[in-house]
Write a protein that binds this DNA or RNA. Structure first.
Lengths: 213, 213
DNA sequence: TCCTTTGTTGGACTAAAGTCCAATATACAG
DNA sequence: CTGTATATTGGACTTTAGTCCAACAAAGGA
């Protein structure tokens, strides 16, 4: 892991930056166009960042940034460009770019940017991995268990939940215990924190009078 | 509330932008220098944003941005400049600027930026107000109660906490109940969430064997 | 010195939550 | 039709947590 993708239509730039980035100890993979990169499944690259030329024939760098965002690919991007202007750089940064460097690219600027981008990628990756873990557990819950969990983490008492769901306290206890087991937590505090992370009480439960028996 | 501060050493710019901003329905207050603005207690301005010229005699805009950050003043900043370059704009954005607009400033660029900046200020203000509320309650806790709260929100049982703190379960119950009361929560789930917001288990408690009796 | 705050603890319960073992009822897939 | 997953419930307890009343000790201030 720790991979750097480089997308630039100028082969001499690719050659020079490849040498630089490789000598800094990173894995590097280059592409001559945004389309080519986009087809390479960058979402599966693990911890990686993207050094991206702005002006290219076909899809340009900023458009690729939008396309990646639209595809939910969160790889950190460092733009490089020979003919940029302020609005362009500002837009790129607003859209989440790590840096925006004028060409010719100085290694004292590029290498720290890459380091920072990879650090960000690493955090994002860890965060995403944790969320996936949690959602995987959530997927093992039955619909009823999910309902119970959503109410439990609000702090409601079992008897209140039972009334809300039109059943009895005993049943809630059973569901609740299965929720704890399936979510792999050993304390209620942990369950609350898990629920916070995935934003659990987000389901629009019908307000007011719900199903009674 | 909803105030716009404008800092620019050029009085004709101040005049023109004041008219524009006022006509858009915002309160505006202008300053001819960064120092002047800095002395005006901007941290107490409520929901507000700052339109800031980069190049000024004395403290320049970017330096003011750093000074504000150092002073923990989080007012959103929109830079305006007549002689900017890409690295300058990128640095400003990295440091959290909302936008970075070239002069002459077009109102179609400035007004949306102000709107966005004020929206951000509003969120920050709400967030800060909530944290202050919580910390105010935390301040009413005795040292011991804080310790107990920190352990309680990890999900430990009263008896475990008692062992950890070298006392008995009964004592923990008392502290715990006072914590709930002083923090003004009616459920354990709420307490856990409050603790999350202020990052409660952050105190470096001595690891391993702690105080026994 | 006297009072307040803080930290403790006991007794006596009540309430809530959790556990084990069992048993029904329904819907659905094979 | 039969087995499985889901949802439900009872009984019988055990553990935990919470509540009310009372009391005591040490530290610090007024």
């Amino acid at each position: 892991m720790m991979k750097v993708f480089l997308v630039d239509d100028d082969s001499s730039v690719r050659k020079a930056l490849t040498r630089l980035i490789r000598s800094a100890g990173y894995d590097i993979e280059t592409f001559a166009s945004a389309q080519e990169f986009f087809k390479s499944k960058p979402e599966a690259a693990g911890v990686a960042c993207l050094v991206l030329d702005v002006r290219m024939p076909g899809l340009n760098g900023l458009e690729l940034q939008q396309a990646l965002r639209a595809a939910n690919v969160t790889i950190p991007i460092i733009f490089i460009t020979g003919h940029g202007d302020i609005p362009m750089s500002v837009n790129a940064m607003k859209a989440g770019a790590v840096d925006f460097l004028p060409k010719p690219v100085r290694q004292e600027a590029l290498l720290p940017a890459i380091e920072q981008a990879l650090a960000r990628a690493s955090r994002q990756d860890a965060e995403a991995a944790e969320l996936i873990q949690i959602e995987r557990r959530l997927d093992t819950l039955t619909p009823r268990e999910r309902e119970v969990m959503a109410l439990v983490v609000t702090g409601m008492l079992n008897k209140q939940i039972a009334y809300e769901l039109g059943t009895v306290e005993k049943t809630i206890k059973v569901h609740r215990s299965r929720v704890m087991e399936k979510m792999q937590v050993s304390s209620f505090a942990e369950l609350v924190r898990l629920a916070e992370k995935v934003g659990i009480p987000e389901q629009n439960r019908s307000p007011g009078t719900s199903a009674r028996r």
